[in-house]
Design a protein around this nucleic acid. Structure first.
Length: 490
RNA sequence: GUCCCCAUCGUCUAGAGGCCUAGGACAUUACCCUUUCAAGGUAGCGACACGGGUUCGAAUCCCGUUGGGGACGCCA
């Protein structure tokens, strides 16, 4: 496939390419940062890191009506949580208006842009008529050759004078060459009637000023690219390399929206996902490296290449995210996991003071998909069961469990070595002595300790709980069994 | 409607003309392991959208069809 070869040729190894890579993530704070944006940010970040380049963060807040501080907050906090650290920025477009006005004036002076006095009503009519004629709606350029001067009191916008003929070739790093006819494009507004510059113009000026070498962004911008290239040409600038990423769809295969999937990235933090797990899941959405599924940050940085990015959109799958998260939970540093578990327990209103959180986390890490789930499952380590799970009690704390619990209490009370291996041996010996399988004594014990039939291995559970607590819970369970209907008297 | 993009199991993907009887992962089913639940292991189910070409040979290259998506804003 020639295309693949071409793509590789455009992304040479850093050793052979002296140019310093500069990428940017340029979110708009008109909506909450969601996983689609995060994936774009991740690819930009990875590409910069992989090539020893610079990653720039730029907030595109020129839509003053809809930009919110809350959205900016989510972007900043989200990026920080994920560890997608910017080398430069955050830059805010609203703080660069002087610069845009400067370039704008230059465009007008050099005949690359012109004032247009068409009203919104005129434009609406024009559009409606074109749609009725089954044409592509676009500005017909009626003010283009009028040489209109800016006048006080007369509302006007500034439009970029797009070339009328010829073609623009976008040499995209993921899609290959995409050709657009200039005849398809109209003269876009670059300054609003209120004097504010617009997105397509600001991006061009910023990417140029910030010396961005690789523009990695969503597929939805592919159509904007030829007009941006035309503006770049008007500036006398060399266009950067473009890489347009396919979209991430919702779980049902339709576009992400507020209805499904498009939730703030911080919600994944709340749900108990590890940042590296979210990143791992996201990096594999649209990119692959052989059959590898689990990547550390280091591994994905070393392996990432735009040449391996897919062209087709992909659907978000929560099950797989959960699995990836569990894989990272199993690999994470135990001390860190213990600290995270502590925070989660506090969030549940449980005081983890004095508990061996690291030991609990190690016992739970392979049986939880999220930190939230881990905390919920670990509650019993810190709180005596207030009630027994009905099904579990019926099965394991029935009348016949009474003698077993008593023997357990006696044996554990006399244990000389309170460690998991020793306790394991003790339990095995007791089972043999009673002529029972280990399960027959472990399950009643488990319910007595955890309140239900599920817990980490019983020896580890005993070790973590400690002798005093174990004996206390055992006698509580014995009392429960004796009080239950049908229990032998005495 | 016009322009642009896309198309391999339910989902994420491998695939660079013969290595493909299409591989891996999630999910799912069964079994093994086992003190519960997990984790882990083994096996099963499951896809090249369709039609034409090019070629000795096509999942792979070309064209078309169909289907999906995006853009067409004084949004970004």
């Amino acid at each position: 496939m020639a295309g693949r070869g071409d793509r590789l040729a455009r992304f040479p190894d850093r050793d052979r390419e002296p140019m310093t890579v500069r990428t940017r993530f340029a979110p708009s704070p008109t909506g909450l940062l969601h996983i689609g944006g995060v994936r774009t940010a991740l690819y930009c970040w990875l590409y910069a890191r992989r090539h020893g380049g610079t990653f720039v963060l730029r907030i595109e807040d020129t839509d003053r009506e809809r930009s919110t501080d809350a959205a900016i907050e989510v972007i900043l906090e989200g990026m920080q949580w994920l560890g997608l650290d910017a080398d430069e920025g955050p830059f805010y477009q609203t703080r660069r208006y002087d610069r845009y006005r400067e370039v704008l004036a230059d465009f007008v002076a050099r005949g690359h842009a012109y004032h247009c006095v068409c009203s919104k009503e005129t434009l609406d009519e024009m559009r409606a008529a074109q749609i009725a004629r089954k044409e592509k709606p676009r500005y017909d350029g009626r003010c283009r050759h009028l040489g209109i001067q800016k006048q006080a009191g007369v509302p006007s916008v500034v439009r970029f004078k797009n070339p009328e003929d010829g073609h623009v070739v976008v040499d995209d790093a993921v899609h290959g060459k995409v050709v657009f006819a200039n005849a398809e494009m109209d003269d876009l507004i670059i300054e609003r009637s209120d004097g504010n510059p617009t997105y397509n113009f600001c991006v061009v000026v910023d990417d140029w000023d910030m010396k961005i070498t690789h523009v990695i962004r969503g597929d939805d911008h592919l159509n904007n690219t030829p007009r941006q290239i035309n503006m770049l040409k008007a500036l006398g600038a060399t266009p950067p390399v473009y890489a347009h990423l396919p979209m991430i769809l919702g779980a049902d295969g339709t576009k992400l929206s507020k209805r499904h999937g498009a939730v703030s990235v911080l919600e994944y933090q709340d749900e108990g996902y590890l940042p590296e797990a979210l990143l791992n899941y996201l990096v594999r959405l649209g990119w692959s490296h052989g059959d590898q599924e689990i990547f550390s940050l280091k591994e994905m940085t070393a392996a990432f290449d735009i040449a391996d990015v897919n062209k087709a959109a992909s659907a978000f799958n929560g099950d797989k995210l959960a699995w990836v998260n569990q894989q990272h939970l199993m690999r994470a540093d135990a001390t860190r996991l213990g600290a995270l578990l502590g925070e989660r327990l506090k969030a549940l209103g449980v005081d983890p003071a004095g508990a061996d959180l690291v030991a609990i986390a190690e016992a739970q890490r392979e049986r939880a998909k999220t930190l939230k789930e881990m905390a919920e499952n670990s509650r019993f380590f810190l709180e005596r069961p207030a009630a027994y799970d009905e099904k579990a009690a019926k099965k394991h704390l029935s009348a016949e469990a009474a003698p077993i619990l008593e023997r357990l209490g006696a044996a554990l009370g006399a244990a000389t070595d309170w460690t998991a291996p020793a306790l394991h041996a003790l339990l095995n010996a007791l089972a043999t002595e009673l002529g029972l399988t280990l399960g027959k004594i472990a399950q009643p014990l488990r319910v007595a300790l955890a309140g239900n039939a599920v817990s980490p291995p019983i020896d580890a559970t005993l070790a973590i709980l400690g002798r005093d607590e174990v004996l206390a819970r055992l006698s509580q369970a014995s009392a429960y069994v004796r009080a239950a209907p049908g229990a032998p008297a005495g």
